[in-house]
């Protein structure tokens, strides 16, 4: 299982800002290891963020996204204590979901 994401969600003036730092190798499939063999691609393909049960952002990633991807976005609404859930799936079928409360 991959390491937990670091998620920060803060509400201000009716807008909630969410910042996510995922822990993932994001291997492009272009790099070679020391012996010259290609390292197989391994990257996050899908990401969904929810506020309570409402989807507030869905994203598709390609291998060009950096290692340990960072993502920040804002949505209207959201109050202190509400749940924000972020989940991803990668090209090998691994997935992870983490949840925080808006502060």
């Amino acid at each position: 299982m991959a390491n937990p994401m670091r998620i920060r969600a803060s509400a201000k003036d009716g807008v909630t800002e969410v910042r996510v730092l995922m822990s993932h190798v994001m291997e492009t499939g272009q790099r070679k290891d020391a012996s010259g063999a290609l390292i197989p691609a391994h990257f996050i393909t899908e990401l969904t963020a929810k506020h309570n049960d409402k989807v507030v952002l869905s994203a598709q990633f390609g291998p060009s996204v950096s290692t340990n991807p960072y993502l920040a976005f804002k949505f209207k609404g959201g109050a202190k204590g509400d749940k924000v859930t972020v989940g991803w799936t990668d090209n090998k079928g691994e997935s992870r979901a983490d949840e925080v409360q808006i502060s």
């Binding site: 807008v15 994001m26 492009t28 409402k54 989807v55 507030v56 952002l57 869905s58 994203a59 291998p63 060009s64 996204v65 950096s66 290692t67 991807p69 960072y70 993502l71 920040a72 976005f73 804002k74 949505f75 209207k76 609404g77």
Partner: peptide
């Protein structure tokens, strides 16, 4: 994908 209610303002990091 930006659903209604989400502000069209995203930041990330790329290679």
């Amino acid at each position: 994908d930006i659903p209604e209610g989400t502000i069209a303002d995203v930041q990330t990091r790329v290679k």
